[in-house]
Design a protein around this nucleic acid. Structure first.
Lengths: 147, 147
DNA sequence: GAAGAATTTAGATAGACACCAAATCCGGAG
DNA sequence: CTCCGGATTTGGTGTCTATCTAAATTCTTC
């Protein structure tokens, strides 16, 4: 446990990281730039900073790849997204909407809060936009979902 | 209906506005500065901008007062805070915590989303930190809570 | 009317995010 | 093996939000 707070990366950088995670393996600058509709230079700058923070390995001109720390963090980001989406879906939003709205607000949720909600939901396995991974002691797991 | 989105003011400005609303009548710069632990000049700048946006009336050297538009907006902010806090309290947080956490995340919630959650909660009258006002057609009120 | 407190103005800093233009690198065509 | 063009990075800027300090201004009270 290295103490993720959920605020380590700015929201844009977190989005980039999540995207890199979803694409897997090596991801190119242009690909990210296209996906988020921003100039490649904007991405390069962000990537440099994310790399400096230790979440990715950036080989100039050759793309980036997650470090193990980045992978772990990205997993948290995905899990947070899905839990937030699930909470929203429990409050009247359709799956599509819940996922869309979750993207807008998830960056505000700390790991702690995410874990609390996860626990209160009973560590659900599924959200409205995918499975929820409950790694090791992801949220003070009361030991119910692991075995 | 003038279409509040919930993103009209930056989060700090919204906090200032909410505070002004809670204090009622004329509020002085120093008071706000002390409450938020920032320099008075920081507050002056923010106030100037909030006034430019039409939410308050700023009489230099004499403090600020909400305009009717500001009052309406502040009410939305308070209602949003309480609904968010209520949602959090439904997910395992103690009242105190729910209120505290809500302050950190509420600025992300659009009016639309707030209304959706409000509806799904059945337009509750009470939250964990105060009453929830359901003005006129605040959230597409299905006419259940008013009479 | 002047001292002293409150407030505002002006000028700086800092972080996040974005863009453009120019330089640089890389890989494939020849 | 060289060279071109596309991909990428660099460097320079701009915007926005939020802060601060120091200096100027205004108000209030004696």
């Amino acid at each position: 446990m290295q103490g993720i707070t959920g605020q380590e990366l700015s929201s844009k950088k977190a989005e980039y990281l999540k995207y890199i995670h979803m694409q897997g393996d090596v991801v190119k600058t242009t690909e990210i730039a296209a996906h988020f509709s921003v100039a490649p230079s904007t991405v390069t700058k962000a990537l440099t900073e994310i790399a400096r923070a230790g979440y990715i390995e950036h080989t100039p001109y050759h793309g980036v790849r997650l470090t193990s720390r980045g992978t772990e963090y990205a997993r948290f980001l995905v899990r947070r997204h899905r839990i937030v989406a699930l909470v929203l879906s429990r409050h009247g939003l359709e799956p599509e909407e819940a996922c869309r709205e979750a993207k807008k607000i998830e960056q505000c949720f700390s790991k702690d809060l995410t874990d609390r909600m996860c626990t209160s939901l009973g560590h659900p396995m599924m959200s409205v936009c995918g499975e929820i991974e409950h790694d090791h002691r992801c949220c003070g797991s009361p030991g119910g979902y692991r075995g």
